[in-house]
Simulated assay, not measured.
Amino acid sequence: MKIIVTGGAGFIGSHIVDLLAERGDQVVVIDNLSSGKKEQVHPDARLVQMDITDPGLVDLFEKEKPEALIHQAAQIHVNTSVENPILDANINIVGSVNILEACRKTGVRKIVYASSAAVYGNPDYLPLDEKHPVAPLSGYGISKHTVEHYLEVYSRLYGLNYTVLRYANVYGLRQDPRGEGGVVSILVDKYLNREPFTVFGDGEQTRDYIYVEDVAKANLAALTAGDGEILNIGTGVRTSLNQVLELFDEIASYQNNKLTGPDRPGDIKHSYFDNQKACSTLNWQPEYTLKEGLSKTYEYYQNKYRKIDKKM
């Protein structure tokens, strides 16, 4: 199968590309490299450096004639969406509609779209299932949800098939620990540099942490299943920040000298998914426990930091 992966040089996208290339698919990566890295693209995939808002996108699709598309490219930071909502909307909404138009005009059979738990906002009940009301608290959540509506409309008007995957808190290899990453990537950096990590509030806030390889496998499964569905991609396990810190202490054999800070206004206290619909629809199960995933992630960055230190 010939597949285009937008954002395929990035954190999650590059893992998806790896799996596709390893099973023998023809893969074309579209990435503007604003956060993705060339060296993360599998050698058997072809990288096209292009922005998803580029009007020339349809010409690329005409040339490549992909059967399917996995759409990972996005502005991913909540803070950026609040500070610069026009940028967020231009990338996440206008860029996605540009992709949909290219798909419509070139006969793409299926789109797998990366959405987010951010569409739900403050939970009315837990665990969050796909029937939970949508009430995003940021421009990022709004932009992610808006594209879900576009997908439904394009399916109804033009027969363009799709599956929406709403991600929980994804962590793992290639997530930038020195950038504006998730809490796990920030913790990796703090533990490796023996720097204190600041816990805001009591540390009992909970999330659903899912390893990146499990997310990549869900994307591959969605290429041939889950047509027209919205699916929560998480572990279904609620884990507190304090529990994550305990695991890091154990994995790193080092007790972090943690600092404490006040609760951050607007932070959601508890959030985790009901993933049963995704499991049954995609015939998929998350395989990594949190300890296994954190151990692989920590070891990866430990080796990477050692190589950086040797060069210096």
Rank of each mutant, 00 (worst) to 15 (best):
67 E>Q: 15
75 Q>V: 13
90 N>Q: 10
63 K>C: 13
112 V>F: 13
97 V>T: 06
72 Q>T: 06
64 E>I: 15
99 I>W: 07
105 K>Q: 14
112 V>P: 00
123 P>E: 01
112 V>M: 08
83 E>G: 12
70 I>S: 08
126 L>Y: 02
110 K>R: 15
97 V>N: 08
96 S>L: 13
79 N>Y: 06
122 N>Y: 04
124 D>T: 13
109 R>S: 12
92 N>Y: 00
94 V>P: 09
119 V>W: 04
125 Y>M: 08
93 I>V: 15
118 A>I: 00
125 Y>L: 05
110 K>C: 05
96 S>D: 09
70 I>E: 06
91 I>G: 05
103 C>G: 09
75 Q>N: 05
92 N>D: 01
106 T>P: 15
75 Q>S: 11
84 N>S: 14
93 I>F: 06
105 K>F: 08
65 K>G: 14
88 D>I: 05
110 K>T: 06
85 P>I: 11
107 G>T: 10
86 I>T: 05
97 V>S: 09
119 V>S: 01
71 H>N: 11
92 N>W: 00
104 R>D: 04
126 L>W: 04
122 N>H: 07
73 A>E: 11
125 Y>W: 07
76 I>A: 06
105 K>V: 11
108 V>A: 13
126 L>G: 03
103 C>V: 11
80 T>V: 13
119 V>I: 15
106 T>I: 15
110 K>D: 05
111 I>W: 01
69 L>E: 13
70 I>Y: 05
87 L>K: 13
116 S>G: 02
122 N>K: 09
121 G>A: 07
122 N>P: 03
67 E>P: 10
81 S>T: 02
109 R>I: 11
66 P>N: 09
88 D>G: 05
74 A>M: 14
111 I>P: 00
102 A>P: 07
74 A>K: 07
77 H>L: 12
97 V>G: 05
99 I>K: 08
65 K>M: 07
78 V>R: 02
95 G>M: 04
85 P>M: 03
66 P>F: 07
71 H>T: 10
86 I>H: 00
106 T>A: 07
122 N>I: 14
86 I>D: 00
95 G>P: 04
83 E>Y: 06
92 N>G: 02
69 L>M: 15
86 I>Y: 01
118 A>V: 00
65 K>Q: 07
125 Y>S: 12
118 A>Y: 00
93 I>W: 11
67 E>D: 12
83 E>P: 01
72 Q>Y: 03
109 R>E: 09
102 A>C: 09
90 N>K: 14
81 S>F: 02
99 I>M: 11
98 N>T: 13
107 G>C: 03
103 C>H: 03
87 L>D: 03
87 L>Q: 06
